[in-house]
Amino acid sequence: MARFTNTIVIIGTLTLLSYVLQPVENYSWKTIKQNQSEFNVSSIHEHLGQGLIFGLLGEFRNITADFLWIQMYTYWENKKKDQTSSWVRLVTIISPRTRHFWLEGARIVGYDIPYWKINSLGGSFKVPERVQDTYLKKQALIAIKLLHQALEHHPNDYSITMQIAQFYYDKLKDKEKAAEYFLLASKSHHSTGLASRIYAKLLVEFHREQEAHDFLNIYLESLLKDDPYNDKYIIIKKIRDLKIEIDKKK
């Protein structure tokens, strides 16, 4: 009876204490949880089994992600597509702040995996082009989805936006969408001239030369005059070429 009473007192006290300390806990937990996306159930819902295991590890979570990434490469080496994509997903869930995991993971999913599938069916000479195209597009869409999730953790990131644009351009052949993302990339922090130049090139392909000309002019103005590494001479040449083309059309 004494043992039963002790147990009830202990559990009751702890529950009461937890209730009393709730505002104190919430005060700091709110900030910590906001900054740690992996602390939210919704983000680990798909991998709850694994997520729970890594949740236990506390500070070792990032190290675990690093080693799982190495482990993922053993599947990648053996071209095991299901395990590779599943581990890419898992690593990005455990450590969403490492941009490298998102980018490299998306490239593996979008560029490598469809070719493994095509090769397993007999190679690109045997598999009909229509079937190859289906695989390439399907995987590119999965990679884009992954990169959109990456943007939630790395908003306005140049490399991620550029990669999305490249998937639309190379794999999905959707130039309108690609242009949309090249434009976004050109406005991102740490953007290079490449995104702007490709965007202008696409505008020319859409027969919007005047718009491309104006866009490059604005871009040229934004370039730092004293930076010897910027691409202002290439841009100036492009603007001149465009001007000639616009004048010809007139």
Binding site: I11, L14, T15, S18, Y19, E25, S28, W29, I32, Q36, F39, G58, E59
Partner: peptide
């Protein structure tokens, strides 16, 4: 409700 939240210290 009866255990403390250790993640609060894991920052």
């Amino acid at each position: 409700w009866s255990f403390p939240n250790f993640q609060i210290f894991n920052i």
